[in-house]
Each structure stands twice: as C-alpha cells, then as structure tokens.
C-alpha cells in the first residue's frame, strides 16, 4: 500500500515538475506546480508530517500559488519566445543530468541501506508536537520569522505602490 501510494504521487510530482519546466505558457506551469505541491503534501502525510502536509496545502498550494496566478493574470503574461538556445546544452546536459542523478541515487542507496519508510512509523509530526517544539526550542527563530514577515509586507507595499509625487 505504501509503495503504491508513493509511486503514484511520486510520478505525479515528477511529471508535474517536468511540465513546469517544458510548458511555454506560465499559467500551465503554475497549474502543474500546484499538482506537484499537492502530491508532495500526500508524501508528507506518508512520512508522518501531518501538520506540514496541511501547511503545504494551505500556504504553498493555496496562498503562494494564488499569488502567482494573480500576478500572471495581472501582467497578462503570454507564451515566452525561445531564441538562442544552444543545442549542445540539451544534448550534453540531458545525459549528464541523468548520469548525475543515477550516481546520486546509488550513493543515497549506499548511505541508507535497508531503512524503510512506512505509514505510522513516526508519530512526532502532529500539530501538538510541532507546536511544542516551535514555542520552546525554536522560540527565537519563530520570533525572528515574524519580524521577517513584517519586513516582507512593508517591502511588498513599498515596491508595488504607485509613485506619489
């Protein structure tokens, strides 16, 4: 069951990620990216990260991607024109990429032999556990994050407002 779920959603994620890269229209890339993020949320659930799966759907697939789609619509972004792309990059880079990934997969396989992930194998990812760690061990980073978000809000407003003079 675990294997089937993993394979289904891993394939959705990889196909979606390839689609993000090859689609020429930004809105198609955005919809594919929503698919990638949704399937990653399911993989988070399989890894026992319930809180983060919910946060992934709400923050990434919800808020951030809506922002992206909103900007694409606002700027009326069309299909991009491709010019001056070297073919040597494709014919040399593609096989090199695949070779590097195979090497990496082998390396990871050697590093973690026989470690299995199954649903329910780790139960420390609930909202309770994450919240407790967030407000004890990680209290200072949490507060710094709030300041970061405040600065980001101010920066977005300053950048996107109309010049008044």
């Amino acid at each position: 069951m675990d294997v089937i779920l993993f394979l289904i959603f891993a394939i959705i994620a990889v196909v979606g990620a390839i689609n993000v890269v090859v689609q020429s229209h930004p809105i198609s890339s955005a919809i594919s990216l929503v698919g990638v993020m949704g399937s990653l949320a399911v993989l988070y659930l399989l890894l026992g990260a319930e809180f983060l799966a919910a946060a992934q759907v709400i923050v990434y697939a919800g808020a951030i991607m809506v922002l992206f789609v909103f900007v694409i619509m606002l700027l009326n972004a069309g299909a991009e024109v491709r010019k001056g792309q070297s073919s040597i990059a494709l014919f040399l880079g593609g096989p090199l990429l695949v070779a590097l990934l195979i090497l990496l997969a082998w390396f990871v396989q050697q590093l973690f032999p026989g470690v299995m992930v199954y649903f329910g194998g780790f139960r420390g990812g609930s909202a309770q556990d994450v919240g407790r760690a967030l407000f004890t061990t990680y209290l200072l980073p949490f507060e710094v994050t709030s300041i970061l978000i405040l600065i980001a809000i101010l920066g977005a407003i300053v950048l996107a407002r109309k010049e008044m003079d």
């Binding site: 990638v36 990496l104 299995m116 992930v117």
Partner: peptide
Amino acid sequence: GVPISWYLTLSAIL
C-alpha cells in the same frame, strides 16, 4: 514500506 532512498532520490530529481 518504501526505502528511504526513494524519497531522497525523488527530492533530488525535483
């Protein structure tokens, strides 16, 4: 279950 290296490889691919 699934080998943990599959997850890491998927992460590398993405």
